[in-house]
Amino acid sequence: MVNQNLYNYILGIGDNSLILGQRLGELCGHGPSLETDIAGTNISLDLIGQTRSYYQYAAKLSEKEITEDDIAFLRSEREYRNTLLVEQPNTHFGFVIARQYLFDVFHLLLLQELQHSKDDTLAAIAKKGIKEVSYHKRFSGDWIKRLGDGTEESNEKMQEAIDGLWRYTDELFEMTDADKEMVTEGIGVDLSKLKETYYQEVTELLTEATLQVPERKYFNYGGKKGVHTEHMGYLLADLQYMQRTYPNMQW
């Protein structure tokens, strides 16, 4: 008997890495400099690597004969559990950096707790991920400062991106049924406890970057329940293109 909650929980975490990795992959060759292209690809590769670890573990837990790729490529949109934040498009470099930073701060807090999970495999994946994600946060945080406190134009663009993405931040801390169940079993992380630290840390950095912290009471949710923004369908159309066009083949 599989632990369906555990299975869903792993997918919830892994999907964030997959979808953000996919978004960054779109940028490869189109960034503002060669050096940033290389850096962005490194982050994407870290995320795809994490995705594979999560999905391989989930596939092992499943009763069905499935692989990491079945999980990555063969679900319907409603079955992806990633947060809305990570699926947002690369509108401009400010959005890329804002999305990255707003996720990285959460991601690191999550993994720092997850490394103490009772589930050894998850704990091990988290431990490895901490080093990668610490670097991601350093990279994106540095860029927030550069763009926020750079030129007038860059400050405006960075602010636009922060304002545009802020409404997706609260969802990062939403607790699904699988989340709650996993917390009681000592496997999962109580996200509500991360929230204060998160907003405190983000506020500090945005302030240092001479950016306004949005004051907002209303947030958007849905990704964790599989109700995504309209961007998601197109992202999946790309992601799943080969598997859908040529079903049941090895690549």
């Binding site: 050096e35 850096a39 540095d142």
Partner: peptide
């Protein structure tokens, strides 16, 4: 310098 260090790490 900070960016140079990060770029050097990635490149």
């Amino acid at each position: 310098a900070e960016m140079a260090l990060e770029n050097a790490r990635d490149v």
